[in-house]
Amino acid sequence: MSEADFQRSVDDGGADHLTGMAMPSLALPATNGQEVDFATLSGLVVIYAYPRTGRPDVAAPADWHMIPGAKGCTPQSCAFRDHHAELRALGVDHVFGLSTQTTDWQAEAVARRHLPFALVLDAGVRLADALNLPRMEVAGETLLRRLTLIVRNGVIERHFYPVFVPEANAGEVCDWLRAQGSDA
């Protein structure tokens, strides 16, 4: 995919408040069968939030490609998969994807795309509410807007928002971590 394939997202300031915030203590189900509480994870954690993954047997919502920031969830996940070893080498202890989709729906994406990390479900947008994450309503569903958080020992150190050209986001995260030096 190229930039021409995406509706450009505009920075509406919806994530400006996140840097420096502590992650709330919430146990969220993950596709690996465990619950994840981002507040309790030590070390460096990358969490990329996305609206929804597609499935080959289910049509996307009408005009999905026309919604700024909607298209590109699978390329973003695949890029984090492809950069996973590099992220680990740069000091990242955990990588997670985050959406409001069901764990079963996300588990299908993990298996089909061979993701080496878990996807986490924010049912009822509890995490989104606690952090006031940017979201959108599409076809009666509350979906997260695409953003990426770098969390160190439970505190948000950096955010990427809006994420434009989702497949480039993992590389941007790696570039930022490299720029931080060996302390990242």
Rank of each mutant, 00 (worst) to 15 (best):
D37R: 10
A39D: 14
A39Y: 12
A39H: 14
T40I: 14
L41T: 15
S42M: 14
S42P: 15
V46K: 12
A49R: 02
Y50W: 05
Y50M: 01
P51T: 10
R52A: 10
R52D: 05
T53S: 09
G54E: 10
G54Q: 02
G54D: 10
V58C: 04
A60I: 00
W64M: 03
M66Y: 05
P68W: 03
P68H: 06
K71Y: 02
T74A: 03
Q76D: 07
Q76Y: 00
S77P: 01
C78F: 01
R81T: 01
D82N: 13
H84G: 04
H84V: 00
A85P: 10
A85I: 13
E86L: 13
L87R: 10
L87T: 08
R88K: 14
R88D: 09
D93R: 15
H94P: 14
H94T: 11
V95R: 04
T102N: 08
T103H: 03
W105Y: 04
V110R: 00
A111M: 10
R112N: 10
R112D: 05
L115Q: 06
L115G: 03
P116C: 05
P116Q: 06
L119E: 02
L121F: 01
D122Q: 11
D122V: 09
D122W: 04
G124N: 12
V125H: 13
R126T: 12
L127T: 03
L127E: 09
A130K: 14
L131Y: 09
N132Y: 07
L133C: 10
P134R: 12
P134L: 08
R135L: 04
M136K: 15
